[in-house]
Simulated assay, not measured.
Amino acid sequence: MIQAFVEGGWAMWPLLVFGMVTIGAAGRFAHRPQLAQLRFIGAMSLLTFVTTFHATWLAISAVLSYLSKLEDVASDQLVKILFTGLMESTRAGGLGGLLLIVTLLLVAIGTLRLTPKQG
């Protein structure tokens, strides 16, 4: 798990922070649901999603930038480097997806506990 985090690059840090804030807000909603909390959870979920997308594209950009600077590399090595880099670029998607799944699970629990008078 730590290796995947490292492979994802520096953009995994803001993704982790935004995702944990989102999960915290969703956990609070699951514990004491109020409809007004959903606006913040929705905004933070969108931020987590956009950060996931951005982190993935930054990683892909880094891989392509690295490949563009290589000169005397055999084509089979080039393909191996490309696919290894693209594999590492997906790490942000894995983390972001996991954070959003936990968030949505907590929101579902809070929604189940929400009564009409709490809205």
Rank of each mutant, 00 (worst) to 15 (best):
M1P: 00
M1E: 01
I2Y: 09
F5P: 05
V6Y: 00
V6F: 00
G9W: 02
G9K: 04
W10Q: 12
M12R: 07
W13Y: 10
W13N: 06
P14T: 10
L16Y: 05
M20C: 10
T22A: 09
I23V: 02
I23C: 09
I23P: 00
G24C: 02
A25S: 11
G27K: 14
G27V: 15
G27A: 15
R28F: 09
F29H: 07
F29C: 02
H31L: 14
R32F: 11
R32L: 13
Q34G: 02
L35S: 14
A36M: 05
L38S: 10
F40C: 05
F40A: 09
I41W: 08
G42C: 04
A43R: 14
S45V: 04
S45C: 09
L46K: 06
L47A: 15
T52E: 08
T52Y: 01
T52R: 03
H54I: 01
A55V: 09
T56S: 02
W57N: 15
L58W: 13
L58D: 11
I60R: 05
S61F: 11
A62F: 08
A62K: 13
V63I: 11
V63P: 03
V63G: 03
L64T: 15
S65H: 12
Y66G: 13
L67E: 11
K69D: 00
K69E: 00
E71K: 13
D72Y: 04
A74I: 02
A74L: 06
A74M: 06
D76L: 15
L78Q: 07
V79K: 15
I81H: 13
I81D: 11
I81V: 15
L82Y: 09
L82H: 08
F83C: 10
F83I: 13
T84K: 13
T84L: 08
T84A: 09
G85D: 02
L86I: 02
E88K: 07
S89P: 02
T90V: 07
T90C: 09
T90S: 12
R91S: 14
G94I: 07
L95E: 00
G97R: 00
G97E: 00
G97L: 00
L98N: 02
L98I: 01
L98F: 02
L100H: 02
L100P: 10
L100E: 03
I101L: 13
T103M: 12
T103L: 08
L106N: 12
L106F: 12
L106V: 04
A108N: 06
I109D: 01
G110V: 04
G110Q: 05
L112V: 04
R113T: 02
R113H: 07
L114T: 08
T115A: 05
T115V: 00
P116L: 03
K117L: 06
K117D: 06
K117N: 05
Q118V: 06
G119V: 05
